[in-house]
Design a binder for these strands. Structure first.
Lengths: 345, 345
DNA sequence: GTGAAAGCGCTAACAC
DNA sequence: GTGTTAGCGCTTTCAC
C-alpha cells in the first residue's frame, strides 16, 4: 500500500535549491529572507500545494493554545448549545477556547471524537454520553488510561468519572406533584425517544410521583411520543383523534420542551385550548419555551450552570499536576410556572 | 521564565527503570509487555499524572482522522447550527468529522480559531466571517499563505476566496415586494445589530425595494431593534408605546426570525393582533418560526444547503493535490407565506 | 519481553 | 541571507 507522497518542507527546500531553514523562515514570515527567494519559495509552495503540518510546527513551543472540547448529543437543540455556552464562558475566563462536536446519539461518533480530541491535544473533554447497550464504554476507559481529563454529563454505569448531571427523576416528579396539587387527576406523560437514557429516568420520575399521592399510576399513562418535532406532532394528533373528548387527560407532562412545543402546535390545530382544556408542562426550559405565544410552564435545568460547572471541574483537572478527587455533582431543577398550566376546580 | 517540566515518556521510562519503547508499548496496549511491568508503568503514569502528547503519537502514521471545522458567529441560534448540520452531513458522507467553534461576533476569537484549526491539523475550515472595520483580514491572508483550505459564508472585501452566501438584499426585497403587492403602504424595517454585516445588507435590500415601487422610502422606516431577544422585546414595546395607533405600521419586515419572535411576543403583550392589526415577516426560517402559534411568514435561507455546499467546496479543495479554481456561490432565498401576514383591502 | 536507534516534519540556535 | 545541526515526544523496526 503505497501512500501518495506528502509534500514536506524538505521537498520544497530541495526543489527551490535552498535549505529547510530558509523555507521555514518564509513560512514564519521572518524578515531576514531576501525578497526574491521568499517569492520563489512561496511560488513553489503554491504550485506544489504544500500544506505545512501544524503538529510539527508546534512541537517545540509546546502547544497551539489552550482548548477544551465538548461532545453533545445533538447540535440543533438549544438545551445543548446553552450548556456549551456555559462551558465556553467559564473556559474563556480561564483562557481556554471551546470546540463543539455532536455525536448525534451515535456511539461510534462519540468514540471517534474522544479519539480525535486526545489525538489533537485538545486538553480535555465534556461528554454527554451515549450509553446504548452497556458495554460500550471502552473508549472512556482508554481516556482514563491516557490520563485524559474528562467530565460526563450523565452517569455511566461501570465507570467512575467526574459527572455533572441533573436530577431527571426529581424534575418530572416536581411537575406531577404540582399538577396534583392543582387538582389534576387525569395526568399523562408523553415520553421521549426510547434510545435516550433520559426517557427512562423521566418515566421513572413520573411513576414515582404517584407512589406518594392518592392517585394510582398505570402504564396507560405513558405514551411514547418522541422528541422529533414532526413525529411528535403527528403522534399527538393521532392520540387525541383516537379517543373521546371526555377521555382526554387534563394535563400532559412532556419529555422536553421541544416535544412540548410540537404538542402545543398539534393542540392548536386540534382546537384544544391551553391551558383551558389541557395543561402542559415541559422540561429543560429552552429559550423558545418562554417566548411561545402561550408561555410554557416547564422544569428548568440550569443549562448554563451545568456547562460552567463541568468546565470548571475539567479545567481543574487539566491544570492540576497531581490527581484531583473525582466529583459527582447533581444539579437541582426548578419548576417555572408560566401560562400553559392552570388550577382545576 | 522557567516552565514547569512536562512529564514525557522518557521521564516515565527512567523512573520505571525501563526503556521508552516499553512505555510506548504499554500506552498502545501491546500484549507483548509482561503483566508486572505493565502495571508498574501504568501506576507510575498515574502518579506522575503523565499525559501522552497526541501530536507526537500521530506524527508517523500521518493523521488522527479526517476532520474539518466550522466557525460560526453564534452557537445558540438555530440558523447557524442548521448550517453546521448541513456541513456535517456532507462531511460525513466523505468520511470527515466536523467540529464547531463560535466566534461570538468577535474578531479576535475568529482569528484564534483559525490559528487553532491550522495548528491542530483540522484539514480545513468553513468560516462565517466577522468583518468589523475592514483591515482585519490578515488571519485570512495567513491561511492563504499556508495553503490552508477554507470557505467563507459571506464575501469579505479585499480577499479572494471561496464563498457560499445568500442574497441578503434580494431576500428582504422579496419580503417588501410581497407586502406591497398585498396592499401594504405603511411598512417598516426592524433592523438588526449594527455590528453585523447582514444588518446593513438587509437595510439596503429594504431601501432598494422602494425604488421599484410607487411608494417612497424614508429613513424613519428603519428602526434599530437588534436581535437579542430581551432587547428586541423592550425596544418593540417602546416603539409602539411612543406612537398613536393610527401611526402604527401595517407591516414589519424583521431582521431575522429570532427578532421576529421577540417582536411577536411584544405585540402579544401589547394586545396587537397578528396579522389582523399588523403583518410580520421574518428572515432565515428557523425551525421555531414554523411551530410558533402564529406561524411566521419568512424568507427562507436554505441553511442545510449552505452548509452542504460549503463543505463540498472545502473538501474538494482539501483532497485535490492541485490548485482548485475559486468558487463564489450565491444561494437564492424563498418567501414562505404562513400566517403572520395578510392582504390589506 | 525489552532496549537501542532511527526517523516523523518542523523550528531555532549558531555558523558562515 | 542562508545553511548546518540538534532536538521536540513519540513509534517502530530489529537486535538481544
Amino acid at each position: 500500500m503505497n501512500k501518495i507522497k506528502e509534500i514536506t518542507i524538505k521537498e520544497i527546500a530541495k526543489r527551490a535549491g535552498v535549505s529547510k531553514a530558509t523555507v521555514s523562515a518564509v513560512l514564519n514570515e521572518r524578515s531576514t529572507v531576501k525578497q526574491s527567494t521568499r517569492e520563489h519559495v512561496l511560488q513553489l509552495m503554491r504550485t506544489l500545494n504544500y500544506r505545512p503540518k501544524g503538529f510539527a510546527r508546534n512541537m517545540k513551543y509546546g502547544d497551539a493554545g489552550k482548548c477544551i472540547g465538548i461532545i453533545v448529543k445533538e447540535l440543533n437543540y438549544p438545551f445543548f448549545t446553552t450548556i456549551a455556552e456555559g462551558a465556553k464562558e467559564y473556559a474563556r475566563s480561564k483562557g481556554y477556547s471551546l470546540v463543539i462536536a455532536s455525536s448525534d446519539y451515535n456511539h461510534e461518533s462519540e468514540k471517534k471524537f474522544t479519539n480525535l480530541f486526545s489525538a489533537k491535544d485538545i486538553r480535555g473533554a465534556i461528554i454527554a454520553p451515549i450509553a446504548e447497550g452497556n458495554s460500550e464504554i471502552e473508549h472512556l476507559f482508554k481516556l482514563k488510561m491516557l490520563n485524559y481529563p474528562f467530565v460526563l454529563l450523565a452517569s455511566v454505569k461501570g465507570i467512575t468519572a467526574n459527572v455533572v448531571e441533573i436530577d431527571n427523576k426529581g424534575a418530572v416528579k416536581k411537575a406531577v406533584e404540582y399538577l396534583i396539587k392543582n387538582g389534576h387527576k387525569k395526568i399523562v406523560h408523553f415520553a421521549g425517544p426510547p434510545e435516550s437514557a433520559h426517557t427512562k429516568e423521566r418515566v421513572d420520575g413520573f411513576r414515582n410521583a404517584f407512589s406518594e399521592s392518592t392517585l394510582a399510576f398505570n402504564d396507560k399513562m405513558i405514551i411514547s411520543i418522541g422528541s422529533n418535532t414532526k413525529v411528535s406532532y403527528e403522534k399527538t394528533i393521532k392520540y387525541f383523534r383516537s379517543r373521546k373528548r371526555k377521555d382526554y387527560p387534563t394535563a400532559i407532562v412532556c419529555f422536553n420542551d421541544l416535544q412540548a412545543l410540537a404538542v402545543m402546535t398539534a393542540l392548536r390545530d386540534l382546537k384544544i385550548k391551553i391551558p383551558k382544556d389541557i395543561s402542559i408542562i415541559g422540561n429543560d426550559d429552552i429559550h423558545y419555551a418562554e417566548i411561545y405565544s402561550v408561555p410554557l410552564t416547564t422544569i428548568r435545568s440550569p443549562q448554563r450552570e451545568i456547562g460552567q460547572r463541568a468546565a470548571e471541574i475539567l479545567i481543574n483537572n487539566i491544570e492540576s499536576s497531581t490527581l484531583v478527587p473525582i466529583e459527582h455533582i447533581v444539579i437541582d431543577t426548578e419548576l417555572v410556572v408560566r401560562k400553559s398550566t392552570r388550577k382545576l376546580d
